[in-house]
Each structure stands twice: as C-alpha cells, then as structure tokens.
Write a protein that binds this DNA or RNA. Sequence first.
DNA 1: CGTGTGATTGTTGCC
DNA 2: GGCAACAATCACACG
Length: 176
Amino acid sequence: MKGGKGKGALRKETRSALKPVEDRKMGKRKATLKDAKKKVTKDKKAKKDPNKPKRPPSAFFVFLEEFRKTFKKENPNVKAVSAVGKAGGEKWKSLSAAEKSPYEAKAAKRKAEYGKLMNAYNNKQVESSDDEDEEEKEEEKEKRSKPEVHDEDAEDSGQGEEEDDEDEEDEDEEDD
DNA sequence: CGTGTGATTGTTGCC
DNA sequence: GGCAACAATCACACG
C-alpha cells in the first residue's frame, strides 16, 4: 500500500513537507538514540517476537484516529501525515480532562487487553531462558496448539464481549 | 516494487 | 526510576 498511487498529485505542500529524506532523516527524537540504530520499521531477520502484541494506542492516538477523519474532511488537500500530527497534537493539548476522558477510557481498555496478550506472549517466550534457541518451528507448533476451527462460531481470540458506549467504570466528571 | 520517513504524544517494557 | 522504542496514518521518494 505504501507504494501508492504515484499519480501526478504532486502538491506543493507535499513538496515543502517532503523535503529530501536525506536531509530530514531523523531530526529530533531519534537523535537521542544516537548510533543505537533504532530501525523502527521492521526487521525481517530479527524475529525476536513471533506474535508480539502491538502496544495499545494511547489516548492521544485514539483521539487522533477520530481527529484524522475530521481533519482530512476539512482538509482533503492535506495529505501530509505530519500535518495531522501537528494539528492533532495542538488540539489534543487543547482538550480538557473531561474530553480526554473518553479517549483515556478506551486507551485503558486497550491496555487491559494488551495485558492479556502479554500474558500469552510471555508464555511463549518462556521457552527461551538463557539461550536463544531460535524457535523456528514455532509455526508448526502453533498450528497444533490450535484445536479446530469450525466454520461456525467465531474464532475470536479473546472474549466476544463488546461494549458500545456504556462505560461501567470511569465516570465522566465534566465540570469546570 | 518495496520500504522508509515524516510528526504528534502517550504508554509500555526493560534494566 | 528512567530511558528508549514503538503505536497509526498516507503519500511520496529513493534504491
């Protein structure tokens, strides 16, 4: 998907926003990493975690998801992710605790699920103690581990519980 | 053709 | 306790 549609959509803003990568390559945060080589994309060779659960989106990200839609809706011309990030960041700071509440609530929930995933994740990692044994066969084992999937029933990993908008805990105290 | 990068903040995990 | 890296997104540019 990244390869995207080249098309002739060369907007000027893109031009300005997309300076030569060689120039803008890591400018701030990564700087702290110095030569640590962060490779935050994906390493094919370093398969440290076969099924490592991705970290739950923080409240900011939850808010961003919605914000992006709004932002793009009002700014369909803006395709720069950085634009949304900046705008979202400012807006986020502008939000009040009460407004962030729902986002935090969701983030908290995500975190709860993440904790469960980590449990299962650690379980697999337990086989590696002091020596990395290269669990290349994990793939095979995983298959066997799985019982049988019927076309019926959902093979949902967790529990099929889903709440719409009702938040049990977490009360919103909007009061300034 | 694929992948990296850019920007935001928050959050989590390891040491 | 602190730091470091990563979470999504989208289009484009480079190899």
